[in-house]
Simulated scan of single mutants.
Amino acid sequence: MNTRHEWTATPITRDILRGALDLERTGRGVLPHRLPAHAREQIPDGQLAMAESQPSGVRLAFRSRATAVELDVVATKRVYPGAPPRPDGVYELLVDGHLAGRASAPDGDTLTIDLASGTAHSRPGPVETLRFTGLPDDEKGIEIWLPHDETTELVALRTDAPVHAPRPSGRPVWLHHGSSISHGSNAATPTGTWPALAAALGGAELINLGFGGSALLDPFTARAVRDSAADLISVKIGINLVNADLMRLRAFGPAVHGFLDTIREGHPTTPLLVVSPILCPIHENTPGPCAPDFSAMSEGRLRFVATGDPAETAAGKLTLTVIRDELARLVGQRAATDPHLHHLDGLGLYGEADHAELPLPDGLHPDPATHRRIAERFAGLAFGDGGPFATENH
């Protein structure tokens, strides 16, 4: 292995970063963000602030003859008292699109979140060095995918050969917005989230704006989508509106229209796919809010329950069944004058038969095998022949 004085340090800039909408300079390095600064100024809660800083789909991308790469990081470890410990985030290094190494940062900043009281406090931690060695000694494309569920400050990048900006891939840029399922909850690796898998299957460059607990039709998120360069756009709407018990049916329709109107201001003819929720039995016919099942936590398991009353749907409370029907109606109405707008029923990605085979482990989120199934279904329906993202359609 090369000695330290032979390493080349490369500044971490947006030139070698993919999948982030902003890069914030910090006291230790840089922090990738998936929402721009003007949107972050309007975030009303800590949940979205945390989620958008977790770099799902964000990767360093460059070309080099390097056989060894070092990356200094500060990862934020989340601790939920009473819940099972969370696994360390995974960093994946790909060479010309193929996995060549994985690493984790075992220590870092710690964010302790008490689900019972809703309080949180943080503790600073150390910089960790990740090392990837034994790479081929030739010019190649290198990507380092950051953990999808662990906020990561990037402190330094070192290689044993010079780094060059990546070549244009020629692939379409697909921007996707959704909930924690799109963010990657319960996926094991950053390239194992369903959007990352679907992008690979569909031959697209991913920008993942899936935000855990926070796909809530926020206007600032719509403006971020509007202002981003993208060839293909999808928005997955529903589950967070139900489990946050955020709005009633009267507000839902106009909010969807406003969200789509804003996106269309910047992307008037871009293929735009509206995806309704996948199956989630606890919320199919039961409104939110959703809450942790504290009896399960006492047994060392994390599960969620719906706490609403199904009878309240008559007064306008939202369930997944209500949202699917309303989205289909709204998209059908708009598509009469917008030929580039499309609808995808989420039950086609994961429905009752899938749930019987691959149930949601915590009642809300798919496991790694289910992420792959959703990805394969989405790739076939969206990127496949006749799909709204098929090459012949854009």
Rank of each mutant, 00 (worst) to 15 (best):
T129Q: 06
K317F: 02
D138W: 08
T26A: 02
L341T: 10
T286S: 05
D137L: 12
I263C: 01
R377V: 08
A187T: 09
N186S: 12
T191Q: 01
D96W: 14
E352V: 03
L146N: 00
R25W: 04
L341A: 14
A255C: 10
A83T: 13
S180K: 09
S295G: 12
F304Y: 15
A83I: 03
I282S: 10
A356K: 09
A120E: 03
L135V: 08
L217Y: 06
P254G: 01
T391P: 04
Y80T: 12
P85L: 12
A199C: 07
H98R: 15
R65N: 11
A375T: 07
A375N: 09
A229K: 14
V235N: 02
A296T: 11
H283A: 09
L273A: 02
D362N: 10
D261R: 08
R248W: 12
L175A: 14
T269L: 06
I142S: 11
D45A: 11
L279T: 00
V305A: 06
R223W: 03
G380V: 04
I181S: 04
N2E: 09
T10S: 11
D385R: 13
V322A: 13
F378T: 07
K140L: 07
S298I: 08
T337V: 11
R158S: 11
R86W: 14
H176M: 13
R303A: 15
A356V: 01
L272K: 05
S179F: 03
G46D: 15
T3L: 05
R171V: 10
I323D: 04
A382P: 06
G387H: 12
E92M: 11
I263T: 01
H343W: 08
E24D: 02
V79N: 05
E376K: 13
S276F: 07
E139L: 14
G184P: 00
E52Q: 14
G266S: 07
V127L: 05
P359K: 03
G202C: 08
A66H: 04
I263E: 03
P388W: 15
W7P: 01
H342N: 02
A161I: 00
V225A: 02
G258H: 03
A39D: 01
L216Y: 03
S56N: 07
E41C: 10
A39M: 08
G384N: 13
T191G: 05
L347W: 08
R301E: 15
H98N: 08
D261K: 06
S182A: 15
R34W: 13
A105S: 12
T269I: 10
